[in-house]
């Protein structure tokens, strides 16, 4: 199991760096080329959300991204240190994917509803995703299958 870990200050300008690193490691791990766009987008959404949570809570510590190459999958964990309470408030109760009746008047606009829309994008993109949070912070775990023959290890 090979792992790359990244920690960055909770600033929007560093989210792109996290996307690029995640896509590069995913490619190396053998994630299908057609799926790399999804990896890039999902990790960007997770990092943007973590940056937003740190900034709104005034947390100075960095956002943590762990990229793990496992036997048949590639997994990403994005961790924040924003306490969200034991019930996981702030996380939508249902990972609904596509909204069935979008009404622009009720859609999230910047910056308040980004969190919700970001999670909706992640849920729509990634089959294997888990969002957890407690009083220490939150973690988004995502994984994608890999093809061992296509990696460059």
């Amino acid at each position: 199991m090979a792992t790359v870990e990244l920690r960055f200050s909770a600033l929007p300008e560093h989210v792109r760096t996290a996307r690029l690193v995640a896509a590069a490691v995913a490619r190396r791990a053998g994630v299908d080329e057609a799926v790399l766009d999804e990896v890039r987008l999902a990790v960007g959404e997770a990092c943007s959300r973590a940056v937003g949570l740190h900034r709104s809570a005034g947390i100075d510590s960095p956002v943590r991204v762990v990229l793990s190459e496992e036997e048949k999958k590639f997994s990403i964990e994005v961790g924040d240190e924003a306490p969200q309470g034991p019930a996981g408030s702030g996380v939508p109760p249902a990972r609904t994917g596509a909204a069935t009746h979008p009404d622009p008047e009720r859609l999230p606009e910047e910056p308040s509803g980004e969190d919700e829309m970001g999670l909706a994008v992640i849920s729509g993109l990634v089959d294997d995703v888990e969002v957890t949070s407690d009083d220490q912070g939150g973690v988004i775990r995502m994984s994608w299958p890999t093809n061992p023959d296509s990696g460059t290890s």
Binding site: L41, E45, S48, P104, E105, E109, E110, M117
Partner: peptide
């Protein structure tokens, strides 16, 4: 080349 939910939020804001 790349669009995320933040960009979607801005477009929705523009539409409103």
């Amino acid at each position: 080349d790349f669009l995320d939910s933040t960009g979607l939020g801005v477009l929705v804001g523009g539409l409103k």
